[in-house]
Write a protein that binds this DNA or RNA. Structure first.
Length: 290
DNA sequence: GGGCAGGTCTAAG
DNA sequence: CTTAGACCTGCC
């Protein structure tokens, strides 16, 4: 049954490696050169990419159309966005390199929690924490025969588990932040819905009321959890990029309607230039250790 | 082995 | 309003 799949035509501006290697999502793992698997919103999928097709495992047409195509943001025309960047040379260069990236529409709560965990942290450890958290407090949603996959725990479960238990997942000083976020979302069932109704700036201010959420985490949550393309996360890399390529101030695109998309192109472009990759193939990793 | 990791809080000017 | 330090942990 694991080998059952169906195919769709590969969308334009779609590169599975770029999508999952640009740091927007912590729950997908590279299992082969052109294949990834992961869990989102309680659903497991395996996806492999060829020249012109996507092979989709453990899902069906209905779920692909109803859920995954939205998750992969297939309704957005990224070539149009890239065209709008054409007056910015650096950005155009970055988009040429990273134009296969799509902003994943992730679950808002999971995004909030994940980016709190991401602060002052490295990717392998972030992924480890989220995995342990899901294994302990999420629901088993898929078993491929030798591995089980778990959904991300909801806010209520983490709140009831308590700060000490969250700390026990080796979250470090972030435990109290995660607990505070869980508390905010659990105690106010409309916390995230209300956030979604606000304009991006007000939404950010609302998220900032959660302990452990600063500008960067708020922007990431909005960009990846609320599909706010105008949210512009500024981290150490983006700071470096701004200093290096925009010493006299950023172009209008960096605070425009698609600032977040621009940010992802620049971020991925610059990190690749510096040889920083996220999802290594397991065998590659082992070879490196020699 | 020790610096560093897609930050944020707190305390102090 | 701006800016140092501190902060858990474990990867590279």
């Amino acid at each position: 049954m694991e080998n059952r799949y169906f195919e769709v035509k590969k969308p334009k501006n779609f590169d599975i490696t770029q999508i999952f290697d640009c740091g927007q999502c912590f729950r997908f793992d590279r299992i082969d050169e052109n294949a990834y698997e992961g869990v989102v919103s309680g659903k497991y999928i395996k996806i492999s990419q060829t020249e012109d097709k996507l092979k989709l495992y453990n899902t069906d047409e209905k779920e692909w159309d109803g859920f995954w195509s939205d998750f992969f943001d297939l309704k957005t025309d990224y070539s149009k966005i890239i065209k709008s960047f054409s007056d910015d040379k650096i950005l155009t260069e970055a988009a040429e390199f990273a134009g296969g990236i799509r902003i994943l529409k992730q679950d808002a709560w999971e995004a909030l929690c994940s980016f709190i965990i991401s602060q002052n942290n490295n990717i392998p450890r972030i992924k480890g924490i989220i995995r342990r958290m899901s294994e302990k407090y999420g629901k088993e949603i898929y078993d491929d025969g030798n591995k089980k996959y778990y959904s991300f725990p909801d806010a209520k479960t983490l709140y009831l588990a308590g700060e000490d238990e969250i700390f026990a997942l080796r979250t470090g000083f972030r435990a109290k932040y995660i607990y505070d976020a869980a508390k905010a979302v659990f105690q106010d069932p409309h916390f995230l819905d209300d956030t979604a109704k606000l304009d991006t700036k007000s939404a950010a201010e609302k998220l900032l009321t959660v302990k452990g959420v600063g500008n960067k985490v708020a922007a990431c949550t909005l960009l990846f959890g609320f599909a706010r393309y105008d949210a512009f996360p500024v981290d150490v890399w983006v700071k470096r990029i701004l200093e290096k390529y925009y010493p006299h101030g950023g172009s209008g695109h960096l605070c425009g309607k698609y600032a977040g998309v621009a940010q992802q192109y620049l971020f991925y472009y610059e990190r690749c230039k510096n040889n920083v990759y996220i999802n290594k193939i397991p065998t590659e990793k082992q070879e490196k250790r020699k």
